[in-house]
Design a protein around this nucleic acid. Structure first.
Lengths: 144, 144
DNA sequence: TATTGTTATACTCTATAACTATA
DNA sequence: TATAGTTATAGAGTATAACAATA
């Protein structure tokens, strides 16, 4: 009998999906604790050390430009994000963290680490290093 | 200098979060290909081999009962899910996949595997087995 | 002409609060 | 009284289509 894909792979993929849901649950929870949606949390994380145009953000997140408009509108009203016209392209708009946004993103990040730590701590140090290496291999090179 | 948590752990947690976003992107995409939201996709996966009450589903997904009502309403209108009064509790409602729902869930699952396979295949077989074992350790025992 | 971003519109997801029916 | 589920309502996230301003 032919097998297209090994059983290990199917179980691995199940485990990846379940892990993804567990991690997302934590991110959603931390978001909720700070009145941030998952997407807003993500935007703030991305802008932590970058300043990006609306379109670049939309592309990175896989969203439409019009969706970004609403997302940034709401975060701007709360004083977390700012908009500024691009210096080099009259059509473009740069988005960045305000000081209040920067003040929020640090504690939020630490809270995520705090909540995910118990999961990670079920593994021994050597296993953690292996897991990290394997995940990083799967993810490929990071953003510049 | 004191360190509260090792650097490996912070990087591991970053890798876990990024992996989660990558997996979610695939699940969202497969959902979109089939006009299913992430949550509906998840409900269908859960009901693949179970029949659950509204409240049990809501608890499992971390949603309010009222949210489940709308979710199941829409899937029921599309003929994917069905409702039936519980045989043992006059207040309760069981939710289950219809034949059309069952027909959809198989190909959807295979499509998810197909799209996640390239990621997994960046690892060698021995590494995949390690990764699977580590993820399963972190996740703890599965649902009965 | 093509690209950047916004606006208008519509639908889904989600929660809270009030309600009905059953336990 | 407590629990299971629905309804009503409201806000956020999302996409599509049409638009204005700039390249």
């Amino acid at each position: 009998m032919l097998v297209e894909r090994s059983d290990v792979d199917a179980r691995l993929i199940d485990a990846l999906a379940q892990t993804a849901f567990s991690v997302m649950a934590v991110l959603n929870r931390v978001g909720a604790e700070n009145d941030l949606s998952l997407t807003q949390l993500r935007v703030m994380g991305i802008l932590r050390d970058r300043r990006l145009r609306m379109t670049a953000l939309a592309d990175y997140l896989g969203l439409e430009k019009s969706t970004m408009t609403g997302l940034v509108d709401r975060a701007e009203k709360r004083g977390l994000l700012g908009r500024a016209p691009s210096e080099t392209d009259g059509r473009a708009v740069d988005v960045f963290l305000t000081p209040a946004g920067e003040e929020l993103v640090g504690p939020v990040y630490r809270r995520v680490v705090e909540l995910l730590a118990p999961m990670v701590e079920t593994l021994r140090p050597a296993e953690r290093r292996q897991l990290q290496a394997h995940l990083e291999t799967m993810l490929g090179p990071p953003l510049p």
